[in-house]
C-alpha cells in the first residue's frame, strides 16, 4: 500500500469518517465516567459499538476499495458480528446488576417486569 495512489479527496473522506467514528467512541468512553448509575453507564459504550464502529468501518472499506482497486466488503462482517455479539454481554451485565440490586434490597433496584 503506497500513499500517492490515493487521491486527496478520498483521503479526506477517509480521515473524516475515521475521526468522527473515533469521536463517537470517545464520547461513549466519557459517558462511562460522567454518568452516575450502573444502568445509565451501560448505555454509553453502545455509541462506540454502533455509530462509532460503523463510521470507522465505512472509512476502512472506502480506503481498501480504492487501494485494492475493487469493492471490498469484508468489513461489513465485522460490523455484523459486533452488532450480534455486543448485546449478549450487555444483557448478562444488566441481568446480573438487577439480580444484585434486588437481593441487596437496594432502594434503586429495578421493579419486577
Amino acid at each position: 500500500m503506497t500513499g500517492p495512489d490515493l487521491p486527496a479527496w478520498a483521503a479526506w473522506i477517509v480521515v473524516v469518517l475515521a475521526l468522527t467514528g473515533a469521536g463517537f467512541a470517545l464520547t461513549g468512553a466519557l459517558g462511562l465516567i460522567r454518568l452516575k448509575t450502573f444502568y445509565e453507564r451501560v448505555h454509553a459504550p453502545t455509541l462506540g459499538a454502533t455509530l462509532g464502529a460503523a463510521l470507522i468501518l465505512a472509512g476502512s472499506m472506502l480506503l481498501l476499495s480504492l487501494v485494492e482497486g475493487h469493492l471490498v466488503l469484508r468489513d461489513t462482517l465485522i460490523g455484523l458480528f459486533i452488532t450480534v455479539t455486543t448485546p449478549v454481554t450487555m444483557l448478562l451485565l444488566a441481568r446480573a446488576a438487577a439480580h444484585r440490586d434486588r437481593t441487596e434490597q437496594n432502594p434503586k433496584a429495578p421493579p419486577e417486569p
Binding site: 461513549g28 444502568y39 451501560v42 448505555h43 454509553a44 453502545t46 455509541l47 459499538a49 454502533t50 452488532t83 450480534v84 455486543t86 448485546p87 450487555m90 444483557l91 444488566a94 441481568r95 438487577a98 429495578p110 421493579p111 419486577e112 417486569p113
Partner: peptide
C-alpha cells in the same frame, strides 16, 4: 433484544416469559 440493546438509550433488562412483560431501562 438485539435491536433494543444495540440502540444507545434503551437497554433490555429482563423478560418474563410467563407474563410476557419486558423490563427496559
Amino acid at each position: 433484544s438485539i435491536i433494543l440493546t444495540a440502540t444507545p438509550g434503551t437497554l433490555w433488562v429482563q423478560y418474563d416469559s410467563h407474563t410476557g412483560r419486558l423490563l427496559m431501562h
